Amino acid sequence: MPLPSTLEKLSALIAENSISSVLPEYDQSNEGVINLLAGWCRDLGFEVSIMPIEGHPGKFNMLATYGRGPGGLVLSGHTDTVPCNPEKWTSDPFTLTERDGKLYGLGTCDMKGFFALALEALEQVRDKTFHQPLMILATADEECSMSGARALSQSTGPGGRYAVIGEPSSLRPVRMHKGIIMDSIRVTGRAGHSSNPALGINAMDAVHEVMGELKNLRAELAENYRDAHFAVQTPTLNLGCIHGGDNPNRICGSCELAFDLRALPGMSNDDLREEIRRRMNPIAAQNNVEMSFEQLFPGVEPFAESENSALIKEAERLTGYTSVAVNYATEAPFLQNLGMETVVLGPGSIDQAHQVDEFMALDQIEPCVNILRNLIERFCLTPARD
């Protein structure tokens, strides 16, 4: 039985609801997407392994391997999407819809489309001799927790030497991105009647100082760290949301501030978290409040691949673009930490990701397949180099 066409594959992937979310009412399993990919890969001659994510029921990674030998190329992507508002879409987000030279659907560019194009690239060369393996890696929950990539990082990994992460980059190679921390600081004072401040300890007053110190840290980071490769050349620290108190005539007994911090390559998330805690301790003592810290998710480290990397040079040659740096985070540092040269390179624009009426332009398909086919030829059809 012949395999579905590239557009038929993409249509089937889009039809599988694999939304991941920190809110249980929106969160879905990615098993349907994994099973589709596994079936197609087996039909193409891959050896397929499906790995449940411990502690995350209904979530799976998949590793499919074609060919044998040392090294090899990993084509990697995540199987989940962000939540959506179907009532705001022009067409059903779970039905692939073509109009005006674009393919619309939830996950078309971010990033189910990459899998369909990767399999098309393999079909064009699979009758040739593979000296190094090609691996298709599909992960879970990139959009909310990166639990799939984290689980992979605790294993031996796919074992490849080079990795392409097919996030939407408009087919421009990305070799650097910022890290991300999302944390909260909870301040606990003591509630009381607002007519007499001595009856309580106002947590919101202390959070005012917390915010001031985080703004001081933001200014110092911007002064001391800069990388001209990035459009936003300094680290950023955003005070995102604040919740506290329950009534105007009651002393605020508890207040929580959540923020994100995006560090440049060469900086450490752990060091930044430690610095924040160090700066908060005097504020807690001076205001006689308790202070607790929570990681809203474990974070992603900054990523940078050498501009002299063989993979980066080949990606630049094939695309005609010099590699760039971006402000968003991906699974790249997890694969790089497993010993692989890594690049982010995929069809579609990041501007369309997480948007109503997400789409991938049809004119991205053939160039992407050609690039991936050439990468397979370079890193799988030629003998491994020392």
Rank of each mutant, 00 (worst) to 15 (best):
228 A>F: 11
184 S>C: 07
240 G>M: 09
183 D>C: 12
247 N>L: 12
194 S>L: 09
282 P>T: 02
188 T>I: 12
260 D>V: 03
207 V>D: 00
189 G>Y: 00
280 M>A: 07
190 R>I: 05
226 R>E: 12
240 G>R: 08
192 G>H: 11
242 I>W: 05
267 M>I: 08
226 R>I: 10
277 R>C: 10
184 S>W: 01
275 E>D: 05
228 A>W: 03
212 G>C: 11
215 K>V: 01
189 G>F: 00
183 D>T: 08
212 G>V: 08
259 F>E: 00
237 L>D: 01
237 L>M: 12
274 E>M: 06
199 L>S: 14
237 L>W: 05
223 E>H: 14
183 D>H: 09
261 L>I: 10
198 A>N: 08
223 E>F: 11
251 I>H: 06
262 R>F: 03
193 H>E: 13
203 A>D: 02
259 F>G: 00
260 D>Y: 01
261 L>Q: 03
252 C>S: 08
223 E>N: 14
275 E>H: 04
262 R>K: 13
197 P>Y: 04
268 S>N: 10
221 L>M: 15
247 N>Q: 15
279 R>H: 03
190 R>T: 07
212 G>N: 13
239 L>Q: 02
268 S>F: 08
228 A>R: 08
237 L>C: 07
242 I>A: 07
211 M>D: 02
227 D>E: 08
220 E>I: 03
241 C>G: 08
254 S>E: 12
242 I>R: 05
258 A>Q: 02
237 L>N: 02
252 C>F: 03
193 H>D: 14
236 T>A: 05
186 R>Y: 02
210 V>A: 06
253 G>W: 00
199 L>Y: 15
196 N>D: 15
191 A>K: 01
203 A>C: 07
246 D>Y: 13
221 L>P: 03
281 N>W: 12
205 D>F: 04
232 V>D: 10
268 S>P: 01
221 L>K: 05
222 A>P: 00
261 L>F: 09
249 N>K: 11
196 N>S: 14
206 A>E: 07
219 A>M: 12
237 L>E: 04
189 G>N: 01
247 N>H: 15
230 F>E: 04
273 R>L: 02
256 E>W: 02
261 L>C: 15
